[in-house]
């Protein structure tokens, strides 16, 4: 933890999402208890933890789906604007530059891959229904811009050859990548990926790994990642935060976290007889 302490002054300046003391309850169930993390601009941060640890709840608090009872979520945009993400609607948060994908893929099933991405690409356009009905030149221009953007992104994630196929007819791995393309089309500064590798095969996992790296390096997008696949986490994440029962029990580099006894305990349980301490989360 000394590493984190040394970085402290630098962290303050280029943190882009600061989650502090967030507590989320559903009736008597506490989903997040005093959780906090800071996401630095340009990094890939992984959130791991056992099932039910509150990872997706955390995402939902960040994207305006849930409203936590306590705590705050601050977002600093590249322009230096500092806003709270609480009290904002999901679409407003998306327009601020925080896009997400879903654990269970949620594409617009009856639209083509291309149309799915285009919806993301045109959210900041100002064209309205009357201009669209009358076929105004600026509407056509805006359409061309979003067409191009959508094409580029489909190529970026590698499903350009499937752009006219309806989303639900795509292979599972392609649907995952299409969902990422749709999120990227909104031109985000921060991309939240909720278990992007769930249900994919080893080859698709390798593709995903390079895709996340390219999103981070080529597009300069900060990535917050929920993932169960430790190999993927270890290879793409610069830092890791571990949640258990809604609390942050450890954070640091992947290697540090892997050796943390609290993490081992969360994943494997307390050894009855003291046990050996060097087991690591898979």
């Amino acid at each position: 933890m000394t590493v984190a302490a040394e970085k402290q002054p630098a962290v303050d300046r280029d943190v882009c999402i600061e989650v502090s003391n967030v507590t989320l309850r559903f009736g008597g169930v506490t989903s997040l208890a005093d959780a906090g993390l800071s996401l630095r601009r340009g990094e890939v941060l992984a959130v791991i933890g056992p099932n039910g640890a509150g990872k997706t709840s955390l995402f939902n608090c960040l994207t305006g789906v849930y409203r936590p009872q306590e705590g705050n979520v601050l977002y600093r945009s590249r322009g230096g604007r500092e806003v709270s993400l609480l009290d904002r609607k999901p679409h407003q948060i998306c327009r601020l530059g925080v896009a997400r994908t879903f654990q269970n893929i949620r594409l617009f099933a009856a639209l083509t891959a291309f149309e799915n991405v285009k919806i993301g690409a045109e959210i900041r356009q100002r064209t309205g229904p009357i201009g669209a009905m009358l076929g105004m030149p600026w509407v056509r221009r805006a359409e061309r811009v979003s067409d191009e953007h959508a094409h580029d992104l489909l190529a970026f994630v590698g499903v350009q050859h499937r752009s006219n196929i309806i989303a639900s007819a795509l292979a599972y791995g392609e649907q995952r990548r299409l969902e990422i393309a749709r999120a990227l089309a909104t031109d985000p500064e921060v991309l939240l990926l909720d278990e992007p590798a769930a249900g994919t095969n080893p080859a698709e996992k390798r593709d995903l790994e390079s895709l996340i790296n390219r999103i981070n390096k080529e597009l300069g997008v900060t990535v917050l990642l929920i993932e169960h696949d430790m190999r993927l986490v270890m290879s793409v994440a610069m830092n890791v935060v571990v949640l258990n029962f809604g609390r942050v029990i450890a954070s640091g580099t992947p290697a540090e976290v892997q050796g943390d006894p609290a993490v081992v305990e969360a994943y494997l349980g307390t050894p009855a007889d003291g046990g050996d301490g060097d087991a690591a989360p898979r």
Binding site: P90, H91, C94, R106, F108, L111, I119, A132
Partner: peptide, 22 residues
């Protein structure tokens, strides 16, 4: 148009539409 696509998105999955900025 953009409007028609946004409507379809809302009809198909409102949560995803909102998360995509609609």
């Amino acid at each position: 148009s953009r409007v028609g696509r946004a409507w379809t998105a809302i009809r198909e999955d409102e949560v995803a539409a909102a998360a995509t900025g609609v």
